[in-house]
């Protein structure tokens, strides 16, 4: 089974690279150094290459093939973060996606923090950021919707470890008359491992949660917030995240975030992002409330490169 999934993904990328039509290629690199308590370390946190091919028929764009291949943690872990085919219905009213894709839960569809120093709560709530399955999504007026049925194994595996799947769904609202405000409501139900993105998979647990999310742009600032509540393995769970980015100058942004979950575990962070010669240079200080001696300073250099044809 795992072999056939890989074959499908590899064939998809090969077809995309060879086909006529709109092709988009993006590569990025994320280098980090950090100090936590007495420990210090530096590493290549991630290197990725993404390929997106749009196939059109006589009536317009019809199929999108997308793959994001990553090497993480000093090249120790390598694999597909995403690899999917999306069949586009007319004018986005409905779309069908199959493969490994970003789950429709909370801020995830619009805000990936993999290449940021921000820490959100996906690992605790939905468990995984991307997963293998099928998803129906689309638009209805100012609303967008997505419903996914997936395996709950994340980017760690191509096959399920048991027969329990994961259902996620989100409804969002966005209007051209009020583009500053983008709220959403979502639910997750089923079993999934934890760990969100890369690294060791956390324990597989039953997740029955609902979440509200909001993205609000006000002047030079952007606020992103998400609150979730429900049960994990039958135990009550509450979690919350708020993050603010404020553009102080064209090349300097201030960042702050705070993610907490049941028992006030988590803590605040503050940082800066500088635009230096086309690269993003970031630094952040994080203070975990429950482990004061494990406060953390992180530095990052991030660069992305894109082309299309």
């Amino acid at each position: 089974m795992a072999g056939s999934w890989r074959s499908v993904a590899a064939a998809g990328i090969l077809v995309a690279a060879e086909a006529d039509g709109a092709l988009f290629v993006t590569a990025d690199a994320d280098l980090r150094a950090w100090s936590m308590g007495p420990g210090r370390e530096a590493r290549v946190a991630a290197v990725g290459i993404a390929v997106r091919q749009v196939f059109a028929d006589a009536r317009g764009d019809r199929v999108v093939a997308f793959a994001l291949f990553e090497s993480l943690d000093d090249f120790r872990e390598t694999g597909f973060d995403q690899a999917y085919l999306r069949y586009k219905g007319r004018m986005g009213v409905w779309n069908l996606t199959a493969g490994r894709y970003v789950l429709p839960f909370g801020l995830l569809p619009s805000y990936s923090t993999n290449r940021l120093l921000v820490r959100t709560l996906e690992g605790e709530t939905v468990g995984v950021e991307t997963d293998n399955g099928v998803m129906s999504s689309g638009l209805a007026g100012d609303f967008d919707y997505a419903v996914s049925v997936s395996e709950g194994v994340g980017m760690h595996r191509w096959t399920d470890t048991d027969d329990d799947g994961l259902v996620t769904a989100r409804v969002g609202w966005e209007s051209d008359d009020l583009p500053e405000l983008k709220p959403g409501v979502s639910v997750v139900w089923g079993k999934a491992v934890g760990g969100a993105h890369g690294g060791m998979a956390g324990p597989r647990m039953r997740r029955e949660l609902a979440a509200l999310d909001l993205t609000w742009t006000a002047g030079s600032g952007v606020l992103r917030a998400e609150g979730s509540a429900g049960r994990r393995d039958g135990e009550p769970f509450q979690g919350g995240f708020a993050g603010v980015d404020f553009s102080l100058l064209g090349w300097l942004e201030l960042n702050a975030d705070w993610a907490v979950r049941s028992g006030w575990r988590g803590g605040p962070a503050a940082g800066v992002t500088l635009d230096v010669l086309g690269a993003k240079v970031r630094a952040a200080y994080r203070y975990p409330i429950e482990k004061e001696d494990e406060d953390e300073v992180t530095g990052q250099v991030y660069y992305s490169w894109s082309r299309s044809r």
Binding site: A22, L23, A56, R59, G60, D61, R90, M91, S308, R309
Partner: peptide
């Protein structure tokens, strides 16, 4: 509009 095509 009922559809669109990406042109590069």
């Amino acid at each position: 509009a009922r559809d669109y095509r990406t042109v590069t």
